[in-house]
C-alpha cells in the first residue's frame, strides 16, 4: 500500500514536471526557481484547503461547505479590520481560526449526533454559510481601501526568502504531515476510513473522530478565509463561489480516494500544485480556458483510474478469502 502510494505520488510529480517542461517551451522563464516559488505561493491557499478536505474525505465524508466557510470567515475578519484597524493581524488570524472552527463544529455535530450523511449536511451549510455572509455584510463589499495596510501586507512580507503566505502553507503541510503520521487521531482517521466496523471494535469512537475532522476542515476554511481576502483584497458574498469543487478536485488528483481511507499529505499538496500550475500558468502562455478545464478534467479522470487500479488489487485479495459457509 505504501509502495503504491509512493508510486502514485511519483507519477503525479512526473506529471507536474512534464507540465512545467511543456510550459517552459512556450514561456522560457517558467522553470526559473523564482517563478516556481511564485507558483507555489499562488497555490498556497488551495494546498491548505485541500489538506483540510483530505482529512474529511479520508473518513468517508465530504465537506462541501469549505468555500462558503472561507467566504463567511473572510467577510467577518475583513469587517472587523475595517471597523477596528488596530486589532493586530495575529489576533485576526486566531479569530479566523475560531470562526472557522465554529462553522466546522456545526457540520461535525450534525454528522455525529444526528447521523446525517455529510454530503447532505454540508450541502445545506454550503448555502447557509454563504447566506450568513450576506446577513452579516448586508450584501455590501469590503474593499481594499477599507482594509488596513497591515491586513493586506502581512502575507506578502518576505521572510527568509519566501512570502509569509508560503511559510504559512509550509507550516500547515508540516503540521498535517505530523498529525497524519505521528498521532493517535491521524491513525484513527485512516482506520475508520478503511474499515469503520473494525475500528468500532478496536475502541475508536467513529462519530467523535468525524466531528474532529470537520473541526479541522472548518479551522482550515477559516484560516483560508483571511488569507484569501487579504490576497485578493475584496470581501463579498461571491468570494470563492464554487471553489469547493476545486478543493475536492485537488484531493482526487492527489490520489485521495473518495471512498475513504486512502490518501496522503504529499498527494493532496501535489494535487493542488497541479491544479495551481494549470490555472496560473496556462493563461500566461495563451492557452484557452477551455483547454485549462479539459486538462484539469482529464487529470481528475486519470487520477480516478489510477485509484480504481489500486482498489482492484485489494479486491483480488478480498476475493481470495471469500468465506466458504
Amino acid at each position: 500500500m505504501k509502495n503504491f502510494l509512493k508510486y502514485r505520488e511519483i507519477w503525479l510529480l512526473a506529471g507536474i514536471a512534464v507540465l512545467i517542461g511543456l510550459i517552459s517551451t512556450r514561456f522560457p522563464g517558467f522553470a526559473d526557481p523564482a517563478n516556481l516559488r511564485q507558483v507555489f505561493n499562488d497555490t498556497s491557499i488551495l494546498m491548505i484547503l485541500a489538506l483540510g478536505q483530505m482529512v474529511v474525505i479520508l473518513t468517508r465524508s465530504i465537506d462541501l461547505s469549505m468555500a462558503s466557510n472561507l467566504c463567511f470567515t473572510g467577510m467577518v475578519v475583513a469587517m472587523l479590520n475595517a471597523a477596528h484597524p488596530a486589532i493586530p493581524i495575529p489576533v485576526l488570524i486566531v479569530i479566523a481560526l475560531a470562526v472557522g472552527l465554529v462553522l466546522g463544529a456545526i457540520n461535525g455535530f450534525l454528522v455525529w449526533r444526528l447521523n446525517i450523511p455529510s454530503i447532505v449536511v454540508t450541502l445545506g451549510t454550503l448555502t447557509i454559510y454563504r447566506g450568513a455572509t450576506f446577513v452579516v455584510s448586508g450584501g455590501a463589499w469590503v474593499n481594499a481601501d477599507q482594509m488596513s495596510p497591515d491586513f493586506i501586507n502581512f502575507q506578502r512580507a518576505a521572510f527568509v526568502g519566501l512570502p509569509v503566505l508560503s511559510w504559512i502553507a509550509l507550516l500547515v503541510i508540516a503540521l498535517f504531515f505530523l498529525v497524519m503520521t505521528r498521532t493517535q487521531i491521524g491513525r484513527s482517521i485512516y482506520a475508520i476510513g478503511v474499515n469503520p466496523t473494525a475500528s468500532v471494535y478496536a475502541g475508536i469512537d467513529v462519530g467523535r473522530t468525524k466531528f474532529i475532522v470537520f473541526c479541522i476542515s472548518g479551522m482550515i476554511g477559516g484560516l483560508a478565509g483571511y488569507l484569501w481576502i487579504s490576497r485578493y483584497v475584496i470581501a463579498s458574498v461571491e468570494v470563492a463561489n464554487g471553489y469547493e469543487l476545486n478543493i475536492i478536485a485537488a484531493c482526487v488528483i492527489g490520489g485521495v480516494s473518495i471512498a475513504g481511507g486512502i490518501g496522503s499529505v504529499g498527494g493532496a499538496v501535489l494535487g493542488a500544485l497541479f491544479l495551481g500550475i494549470i490555472s496560473n500558468a496556462l493563461p500566461v502562455i495563451n492557452i484557452s480556458p477551455f483547454w485549462q478545464m479539459a486538462i484539469s478534467g482529464s487529470a481528475i479522470i486519470l487520477a480516478v483510474v489510477l485509484n480504481a487500479r489500486g482498489e482492484r488489487r485489494q479486491g483480488r485479495i478480498i476475493l481470495r478469502k471469500a468465506e466458504a459457509a
Partner: peptide
C-alpha cells in the same frame, strides 16, 4: 474481513490499533 483486520494498514498498525492509547503519549504515537 469486515470487523477484524483493517486492510490497507500495515501489520504493525493493525496490531497496535486498540492499544494506541497505551503506545502513545498525549496523542503522539
Amino acid at each position: 474481513g469486515k470487523q477484524g483486520v483493517v486492510i490497507g494498514l500495515p501489520i504493525f498498525q493493525n496490531v497496535s490499533l486498540p492499544s494506541l492509547a497505551r503506545t502513545s503519549k498525549s496523542g503522539v504515537l
